[in-house]
Structures are given as C-alpha cells and as structure tokens.
Design a protein around this nucleic acid. Structure first.
Lengths: 343, 343
DNA sequence: GTGAAAGCGCTAACAT
DNA sequence: ATGTTAGCGCTTTCAC
C-alpha cells in the first residue's frame, strides 16, 4: 500500500500558483521570484515531494543514465574502473546501470538491447572475449548515442576507445626478462582474438625478434587464465626436460597461481624461472617473492572514460569522434624477476 | 542528430489498427489475434521500434530497477556480491543502479535520495562505516519499498538483513589460534561501531573468556585496515619487548600486508606468530605461507539478497518483513596458523 | 478481438 | 514573473 505521490499539481494547488511555476521554481529557473521559489521548496520538502523522473525523462527525452557492460565484475581491475566511472559521472548528475556479459557474446547482445531500451544516454563497454560480431552496437551508433570501449576493444569498430599500450607493455615485460638473462620465455595469456592479449603477444614477439631470438611456439599458451588452466599448463611444462627460465603471464592472479605451483615443484623464483605478471593487482605485492608486473591504472582509466563520455554528451554535435586514448602503463620491477644485482 | 523514435502510433498507423491493439500485441495480451500479433511484431522489428520505458513506467508506476549502495566497489568481496545480485535480478527482468558511499554518511544520504527519486523498486545497502543516523532510509520504509541490508548492517534498523555470523566467525578464528598454542593474540580490525567488526571482536573476547584468558587492551587495534594502517600498527607492535604470538586481522589483504611486514622483520610465520585473516580472498591462498581465513561467500550472498528482494517485490503485501538471513561461513585452515602437526 | 479516450507527471513554447 | 496549453508514449477502462 504505497502512499500516493505528491505531484507539482498538489504543490501548485496549495500555493495557489500554476504547475508551470512550481516546475520552474523546482529547477531554479532564473525568472522565478525568490520568495516564490522559497515557498515552493519549503512546501515540497514538508510534503515529501519527489520529482517523477519518468515524466521528466519522457518529456525531456533524456535519462541521465549511462550503461556499462563488462565481461565480469569480479576483478579488482574492473571494480576500480567502475569505481572511477561512478565517481565522475555521479558528480555530473548521472546514474550508472551495470551489466555483465560473463564473457558470452549472446549475453552481451541482450545486455546491449536492454541498455538501448533503457535509453541510456551513453554506453561504456569492455567486450567479452567471445564477441566476434559487433552488430549489436549498430543501433547505438546509428542513433549517435556515445559509446566508449575500454580495455577489451575491437579494431573493427570505429568508436571512442580508452586503453593502455598493450603492445608496449608486452614488449617491456619480455625485454625485461631478456635483460635478466632469460633465454626461453614462456608466455601464458588469454584469448588472442581480443586486442589486449594479442597486442601483448605481439610485443612479446617483437622483443624476441629484436634480440634475434627465434619464437618458439612450444612456449606459447592461451587459455582462460583460471586457476585450473594455469595449473594444467604449468604441470605440462614441468614434464619437459627443457624447461623455460622465464615466464610472462598476463594477469597477476594467474602469475600468483603459477608462482605457487612452481614453488611447490621445488623451483626457485627468480633463479630457476623469472616471472612477470600483469595489472599490478594487490596480490602481486604480497607473494613471496613479490611479482614484477605491469601497472594498469584501473581507477584512472575509469575516470578518463567518464570524462570522455560526459564530453561527448555535452557536445550534442553529431561528429562521430573516434579518438583513442592510451593511458600510461609501466613496468613495476619486483623480486620475482630480478636475477642480476646490477641492473 | 538522433533519429526520431518509432512509437506504437507509427506502428498502428501503418497497420491500420489502433495504438491500443499494438500495445496489447506487444505485451502478448491473450485477447489479440495471433495474426495481428505477428504483423505487429514483424513491423516493430523491421522498423527498429523500441518500447519507451519512461512512458511505460510513468503509466505503470513501476521501474524494474533495483538500487545498490555500497561503501566501495573495489574489493573482490563486493564485486562478487554485486555479480551475484546482478545475475539473479537480471534474469527476473530488473536492472541494477549502483552507487558508492565512499564510507561517508553524507554521500550515502545523497545516494539514497537519488535512488528514491529514481524510484527504484527496491534498495540493497551495505552501510558506510561512517553512518550513525539512519533517517535517510525512512522514506523507503514509509513507502514500503523493500530494503535489504547486507554485511554492514545496523541493529537499529528494522529491515531485511543478510549477513554471516560474525560473532561465531570471530570466535572460531580466535579459538583456532588458541588451539594452536597462542597465548597473546593481537586483534587488528575495522571500526567497531559497525556490526561486522564489533561482532567479530565480541567473538574474539568470548573465545578468550572461555579459556580464562584475560582480555588485554594493548593487543587490540582498530583502524581502516589500509596498507598504511597495518604497517603502522605492526611497526608499533614490533617495538614491544612482549610480542604477541597470534594475530587475528579481519580482512585478507590486511593479513597479507601484515604477513609481508612481519616476514621482513625476520619473524617466522606461524612459528613466531600465527595469523588468521578474513574473507577467503584469492590473496590468502598465494602468500607464503598461505593464510588461514574465514570463508565469506560473496557471490552466494549476492544471490541470496537478490532472491529475497525479488520475493518481497512479488508479494506486494505491506507486511514489513524483518527477517535476518545468516549465511554459512567457515574457518579455512592454512599454513599461516598451523603450529601443531596433530589436529 | 479491437477501438476510443483519458491520464500518468512533467516541461516548454507561447502567451500575458 | 507567472499562467495556459499541448504533448512526450504508453496502458487500461470501458465500449462495441
């Protein structure tokens, strides 16, 4: 039995003015008398009036809502990004609607439709690893609703993008291992149809190439970087007689798993095998030894994304900006890869 | 230059039927002819029609949106909870709006108002550590809009609550340390005005009491469990001549920090000091030694919360349910606390 | 099985 | 500085 809502008509009636004046007063319209405004506000508060956003949205054709679709919410990186986004857009008077694709194209498609029907003013997306077809975003593009892709993007889509230079990061990570004297560098990474892993892989290749080291496919593995997958891969590696002396694995949790398994197998890190992870998650700092990694500024990325989309929203122009913002990432060197005292 | 939207009137006109029929057809009303429905659907799809939720909500006085307010989004536990919630309510046709209070009562208050004005059908809240006054939730309660509090709750509020038995968890953690022969157990925890930390603390006290060990205030610290705070506290402890031989610290990241610092100081864990954390975050598994902790099922909690709120939404009755659901948590014993071989 | 018409609450163009 | 009026797009009661 919800109470009936107070409307601007109720306020208008009690104050013997028109609903239009109440509406203007409530939104602080300059033409309205200060006294009138005060009367309106006071009555509104005392009666517990709340604006009906649906009526307002319906009328204004704007929702003040931004949608976010991410593969999964359960990583520190994602949380930080979302946290960053929320902070900025909230200050600008927007709300966030969040959905997860669970790495499935079909779910991503449904999510996108839901967002579209919810008439979000803008959409922020990190693609599922599964997504090959991007036509579900066409509706947004056609209607010129701003979309920003981040982290997991697709070259095929012309849109605003925010990411780090994964190629460079991969190059740095690998070069660092080579600098430390590694000769055989194992690379365990995610699905390389997606940019993030592909670019890191290419950076890895280039680093090898620059030192005239031939790429060895036997040292390259792609999987979902889950605990199980890492376990399986490492176990297989450990069976070989020719063991790698370096490992570049593209997320820190996976790096931590790998480290644990390698230690259990009696290997010394970094002496027997040097490790570089990715993301600079908290976890990389507390393992023994701490893991060398690539710093990946989640919150900062979120804030950047938010600012970009707010800008696009303000412009209202139909220039279809397709800028790409590349955030700085850097190698954070820790004990897991340090085999030379000098440097 | 957004395209103009297709409305049910456009469809009606083209099909030479009334808007009412289109509306009914679209929502699969039983009284509408199958053929007519098909015609409507086909045209709708080909024209790219999308229902206007605002008009619909305005008319139906329902939003299919659920609000979530949490202190912070950047922990694995929170992500998991939200992930669980999103999964369930999304299947039920609801959307999530998420906001962070950043541990500030004022922000929580604003968030609550925003949610209220957004006319969420239900609200899910984990309180900020800062919140002392709960009047901002009154509007929801008065209007009989379902609220579910989880994890960080307040005894003062009569509402539906989902949490774990923090008292028992605290008791178990402490008892376990005592079982392992610890005599002086340091307890580092968060703000104990909030239930979670308070209850754990009381469990700690009770465990001591049951063994006739007197509580020593010098072994009790509250802070924000940040890296810095843990560092400061441990540093102070290390200066003492009488060092504790056990540590119960109420989150795993903090436990991992503490472990790192203690190891750096040359102490052996668990020999010199045994450690129990809280949450069973990934991080507790990969430290050296792995950290004994309390398993805290985030995703499961999220799913439970979602089911409860959906139930409340269905009922529509105005019975103000104030149930409390306690989820199972358990001690996960790992090397950081195992000082006895037997057991 | 379908249509006519009213109204949800708000905003804005146009008056005054 | 304020009022009048129309309409945003949908649902639903009441007709037929």
């Amino acid at each position: 039995m919800r109470n009936k809502e107070i409307t601007i008509y109720d306020l208008a009636q009690r104050l013997n003015i028109s609903a239009a004046t109440v509406s203007r007063g409530l939104s602080d319209h300059p033409a309205i008398n200060k006294e009138t405004k005060k009367k309106i506000f006071d009555l509104a508060t005392s009666l517990g009036y709340r604006s009906n956003k649906f009526a307002s949205n319906l009328r204004k054709q704007k929702t003040n809502t931004i949608g976010v679709i991410v593969p999964r919410l359960n990583s520190l990186f994602m949380s930080s990004v979302i946290s960053g986004i929320e902070k900025i857009i909230n200050n600008a008077g927007y709300n966030l609607i969040i959905a997860q694709s669970f790495e499935q194209e079909a779910k991503e498609r449904t999510n996108t439709t839901t967002m579209f029907n919810s008439r979000v003013d803008g959409l922020i997306v990190s693609l599922s690893s599964d997504t090959q077809d991007f036509s579900h975003f066409d509706t947004f593009i056609k209607k010129n609703i701003p979309i920003v892709f981040f982290d997991r993007i697709a070259k095929e889509i012309e849109a605003t993008k925010v990411l780090i230079d994964n190629y460079k990061a991969g190059y740095q990570a690998t070069s660092h291992l080579l600098d430390q004297g590694c000769k055989e560098i194992l690379h365990i990474t995610g699905n390389i149809t997606r940019n993030v892993y592909k670019d890191r892989f290419e950076g890895y290749m280039k680093a090898l190439e620059d030192r005239q080291i031939e790429y060895n496919p036997a040292l390259f593995f792609t999987n979902d970087l889950s605990e199980q997958a890492v376990q399986d891969t490492i176990t297989e590696i450990l069976k070989r007689k020719n063991r790698p002396d370096g490992l570049f694995i593209t997320n820190d949790s996976a790096a931590a798993y790998a480290l644990t398994i390698l230690k259990q197998a009696g290997l010394k890190v970094p002496k027997d095998i040097a490790i570089v992870g990715f993301n600079n998650d908290l976890i990389s700092q507390v393992t023994e030894p701490a893991i060398t990694t690539i710093n990946y500024p989640g919150k900062e990325m979120g804030e950047t994304i938010a600012r970009i989309i707010l800008n696009r929203l303000d412009e209202e122009g139909d220039l279809n900006i397709t800028s790409t913002t590349t955030l700085k990432s850097e190698l954070v060197i820790r004990a897991s890869s340090l085999r030379k005292k000098d440097k």
